[in-house]
Design a binder for these strands. Structure first.
Lengths: 236, 236
DNA sequence: CGTGAACTGTATCTATCGTACACAGTGTCC
DNA sequence: GGACACTGTGTACGATAGATACAGTTCACG
């Protein structure tokens, strides 16, 4: 998975700063169209099905024609993200930072449920497009009236979104603790076979009801925020 | 990144259930040796430098010889994980669930700092080896004396480790919020340029001190656990 | 109005990846 | 002393991302 070569060019592409060429033949399609079909392929068959070859074929063109629109595959993924993230939630109608964050978490979860490949590519140092940037902006607005400092607010919204990301990944293929998938029954057998070395895990997984939910974690996180906020209030 | 083909075979490999062959020439090396050199390559040059070709060459052998020891690359990664995770922390010497979890988080963070590629491959449904399995067992032991239910304990330790994972990934290349890396200055310029659309992010990133730490998040999480635990105590 | 520069999509090529398969040595058991 | 299982090797294949060269198209400018 090659990294982006020229982040400045990517920024111009995502933020609509590309100067349209005057001379030359009309392009047969545009970046938005490419991104849309790539998103459809990823939604239907997973991100690993998205290759230059495949997307080009989907549009009825050669692979190398795509390189006229995106400089490399990292740029293709970037425009896919920008095309797939929906509109960031408007939290102004919700009262209180806690309800706002809960609403934000719900919306984020819903967006990622629509495009299961999205949480895996929205990590790491990268250039975000305007639509994606609106999401952390929205999350920050939830904490606007709290006494938290600005770095703390950043940490807070990252904590929430990372939790949603992790639990979402857990729901789809299973995660570090085995909820479902091919490996789950094998791990259960191994744990029961070695119950003397791993007694806690063995008893926990003896009951097959261990479905990881994101509710407990989200409540804990928000309770933690509440603790920090109420503790800070009398000082300020 | 092809998925593992035969999780049962992988389980036998990781848990030492491989029957040693009697006939045939002596193997030139063993799986532990392969895993060790692969770990060294990953530590020095990143996980993307680990290919069958590269590891074989590092050992002075052909690429295809590796397939006598691991069935596919997923198995190679699996034995790398098992070789790289250190011993799980013994928390019996620490008093109180909160201090235990803090110690666990410290140890986990330290282990991942030693092998920066480790957090990215320890997700998803997969077969874990005994050394890695000891880690969640250790984490569960921290919550043994709490009134939390077993599914809640699982959720709790997943929340802690996922937080460490996310913040660790943030420290190394930068994450969703841009702390460092090639994209960071570009994003800052874009935010300041569009400060009207993203006022909160723009002001937050005007000060270049926004280094994401894992302390705030961890404290919030543990505060949340404390809330759940103290709330549960009178009932039980 | 025509010509050249800029831009388009295409065809060909390379490098790297994981992995299947046939083969010739090598060591153990009957 | 075979038979046989197991070893490492060489070759081959398909898929990947990407570079480069090329021929057709269209607009701007003289």
């Amino acid at each position: 998975m090659s990294a982006n070569e020229d982040p400045k060019a990517l920024a111009e592409l995502l933020w609509g700063l590309r100067k349209p060429p005057s001379r030359g033949p009309r392009p047969a399609f545009d970046v938005a169209q490419i991104a849309e079909t790539a998103v459809q392929v990823a939604d239907a068959e997973g991100l690993e099905a998205v290759s230059m070859q495949r997307i080009a074929a989907e549009l009825g063109f050669t692979k190398m024609a795509l390189y006229r629109y995106v400089n490399d595959k990292a740029e293709l993924i970037a425009v896919m993200i920008e095309a797939a993230v929906g509109a960031a939630p408007r939290l102004s109608g919700v009262a209180g930072w806690r309800a706002k964050l809960e609403e934000y978490a719900r919306e984020l979860s819903a967006a990622w449920r629509l495009h299961p490949w999205l949480p895996s590519v929205t990590t790491g140092d990268r250039v975000m497009g305007p639509r994606e940037t609106a999401w952390p902006e929205s999350a920050l607005s939830a904490l606007a009236d709290t006494p938290l400092t600005e770095p703390e607010r950043l940490d807070a919204i990252m904590l929430v979104s990372n939790h949603i990301r992790a639990t979402h990944a857990a729901a789809t293929p299973g995660t570090q603790i085995w909820t479902d998938g091919d490996a789950a029954p094998i791990m259960r057998d191994l744990l029961l076979l070695n119950a003397d070395r791993f007694p806690l895990l063995a008893t926990t997984h003896a009951t097959p009801s261990a479905t990881t939910t994101q509710e407990f974690g989200l409540h804990a996180i928000l309770d933690g925020f509440e603790h920090a906020i109420t503790q800070r209030i009398p000082k300020q």
